[in-house]
């Protein structure tokens, strides 16, 4: 049986924790709103870019000297898994969910005899990957490389990736991030960004439709030059988009995690208060009984 004093200190410590979690929840919800609006603002560019890319890719697919960034180098031995994560903790299962998806993928690739490397964006998943896949990490970003999430930062990462690709460090790059659906649901997602060739039937059909309707498009200077300048940019856009989705998901995830812990704290406080009151009552009763029986004995 805990003592009265220990119960009292527990209640007060839970109270101060719940103050912190409530504050964090409110901060996260304010940040979430901002991140959501930035995500919405970035969508038109990404959408347009994807449209243009799929159109160009469909037209360039047949050409023999296609670009390696678009069509690959004809091998897929070394896979680079780009794993994003947050820079701050206390956001529920956010980082773990992304990591789990990447890990499953990595194990599947290794089982198929491929070489796996990791490129970690955001600091929180870096130690986990370092421990579970020792020596496989080729790069970990630092805090100042990823926050705030700006297009310039995404571009730097993209340039680094393209350099590594051109140097032959890897053949295929997969990007793992958390897709933001709503506050309650963030889905860990995987996309292949290098080579960028559209693979799903959906994009293929769309590209074919575009191709049919755009027989008479004029290109200045020419398709290949445009494609080769646009490809690195589209990779930067993909990374920027992923970073934004991630930032939004992180805040959403933190908000619901903090909401849960605030509620839990409230429940615990009321449970402990009841226990405390019972205990106090019991102590008073015992004292009274002692006094009365002492008086009777006289």
């Amino acid at each position: 049986m805990p003592s009265l004093k220990s119960l009292k200190t527990r209640v007060s410590s839970i109270k101060s924790i719940s103050k912190i979690t409530r504050a964090m929840q409110m901060v996260a919800s304010a940040k979430l709103r901002r991140a959501e609006s930035r995500l919405a603002a970035a969508r038109p560019y990404a959408k347009r870019m994807a449209q243009v890319m799929s159109l160009l890719a469909a037209r360039a697919a047949g050409t023999p000297n296609a670009l390696p960034l678009l069509n690959g180098r004809g091998k897929d031995q070394t896979h680079l898994l780009i794993v994003t994560s947050s820079d701050a903790g206390l956001c529920g299962g956010f980082n773990a969910n992304i990591y789990r998806q990447a890990r499953d993928r990595a194990l599947a690739l290794e089982a198929a005899g491929k070489t796996v490397q990791f490129y970690v964006i955001g600091i929180k998943n870096a130690p986990v990957i370092r421990n579970n896949f020792p020596g496989k990490t080729v790069h970990e970003t630092k805090r100042e490389e990823t926050s705030p999430v700006t297009f310039e930062n995404a571009q730097k990462i993209a340039q680094d990736l393209i350099q590594r690709f051109n140097a032959g460090e890897f053949d295929v790059a997969h990007l793992f991030f958390s897709h933001y659906h709503s506050v309650l649901s963030q889905v860990p997602t995987e996309t292949q960004i290098i080579p960028a060739a559209p693979e799903s039937d959906d994009t293929k059909n769309q590209a074919a439709a575009n191709d049919a309707s755009s027989g008479a498009i004029e290109f200045e200077p020419d398709e290949e030059t445009i494609l080769s300048t646009l490809l690195p940019r589209s990779i930067a856009v993909a990374i920027y988009q992923a970073m934004l989705e991630n930032a939004t998901s992180e805040q959403g995830s933190r908000m619901s995690a903090m909401e849960n812990s605030t509620r839990n704290a409230g429940e615990m406080i009321s449970k402990l208060s009841i226990q405390y009151n019972r205990l106090r009552q019991a102590a008073i009763t015992t004292e009274l009984v002692e006094i009365i029986s002492g008086a009777e004995a006289l």
Binding site: V52, L56, S214, A216, I217, E218, F219, E220, P221, T225, I226, T229
Partner: peptide, 8 residues
């Protein structure tokens, strides 16, 4: 009514 064009 400009003709469809893509340009850098």
């Amino acid at each position: 009514g400009h003709m469809p064009t893509m340009t850098a």
